[in-house]
Design a protein around this nucleic acid. Sequence first.
DNA 1: GGGCTTGTTGCGCAAGTGTATAAATAGCCT
DNA 2: AGGCTATTTATACACTTGCGCAACAAGCCC
Lengths: 222, 222
Amino acid sequence: MPDAADPAPMNARRKFRREGEERRRQDLIEATLDSVAEYGLQGATLRTIALRAGVTAGLIRHYFPGKEELLQEAYTALVSRMTEQAKAALVMENATPRQRLAAFVTANLNAPIIDARVFSLWATFIGRASADPTLARAHREGYLGFRNEVEAAVAEVLAAEQRKPDTSELRHHAIAINAIIDGLWIEGCLAGEMFSPGELAAIGIKAVEAELGLAPEKGGNQ
Amino acid sequence: MPDAADPAPMNARRKFRREGEERRRQDLIEATLDSVAEYGLQGATLRTIALRAGVTAGLIRHYFPGKEELLQEAYTALVSRMTEQAKAALVMENATPRQRLAAFVTANLNAPIIDARVFSLWATFIGRASADPTLARAHREGYLGFRNEVEAAVAEVLAAEQRKPDTSELRHHAIAINAIIDGLWIEGCLAGEMFSPGELAAIGIKAVEAELGLAPEKGGNQ
DNA sequence: GGGCTTGTTGCGCAAGTGTATAAATAGCCT
DNA sequence: AGGCTATTTATACACTTGCGCAACAAGCCC
């Protein structure tokens, strides 16, 4: 194929489409998270990110002042996505407080929250939090929101059991339960194949109920 | 100051001392951990590391094939240091199994194991584990060793209580307790100032004992 | 003390980084 | 259809990075 009118001149400029601003920003953030998860913060170069987003590197600067801001927005998006998914499990109706708490634990110990990619991202970013106040703040807000949800759920469970914990006791329960969920989440993300499906959730529910001093449920806890 | 016999000729080569190989390697690894904790994997350049170790960058290649190997050795050193410190708390004599388990929990939830720098390092490296088999293996070995210690300690506690758990029950207890310790460790490292001294350890011990179904100790649990 | 080994320095290099900026073109408005 | 604007590309630039290499000197051995 030596000749013929070349429909694509060799020095052709790349074709492109103009996307809406919101769409582009979201695509870039998603491409950033993908790159960070796969290559780490060092491997997530502007060119890598742009390639994955299907644009050229220069465009990033049109939407973000610099790489740092892009990373910060990506982390913020990640945190809010994680906590929202988690808290969504709490809005169940026609369920006892205890069932809702159990559902919350279960939701947090299965896909999509148990996920190696999300964990990798979480760890990568949080490792920089102590040196980057912006990241630290994003984490702090997500964490406190999460713990408050736990504390509220615990309060309802105990109230349904006619128990009146003082604030200190309540806080300690929330901290412990938060730790149980976090710890199991890490184990599941890092070594998911070591656990059978539903096993982590079962362990988590039993541990949480033991922490709260709840009597084992009668009937089919399988 | 134009003239005078200059005792330090401007083009003087830097003075240096020859250190033993073991000493240099250890210094370089320590400098690597410092740099990673402070600047992250991206900021931990060979020049930064060398500067902190008090040598020039070129020397690193005399002791390590490349940067990657240096980082891997640094992570291995970190993991083994962490697990050794933790397990050291288990070798108490003249103590009941329950006391030894409590001491283990306490040791893991106070300095030097609760430490922002160590956490930052752990998170930074573990974030790369899913993409780097070498890091993944180093973590895996440390984790399994840790969990085995927990499982052994739990077995002794239950044996002292005349209970005979089957292997599955024992495994679940170990996983849950491991999660409790990990989760509280993270909370302490990330937000140490939110907890009063000893508070995390107290929460941890109570949670662990609840998980094992141990009756509250009579007498001064403060 | 004088050589010899080798730990150590200093410099250079090619590749890759984030950023800056000019040129092009997609797609809306009239 | 034809301009206008702002999204997008493309290129350049200064800088850093990990690595290679040759010269140097610290300190052991005789």
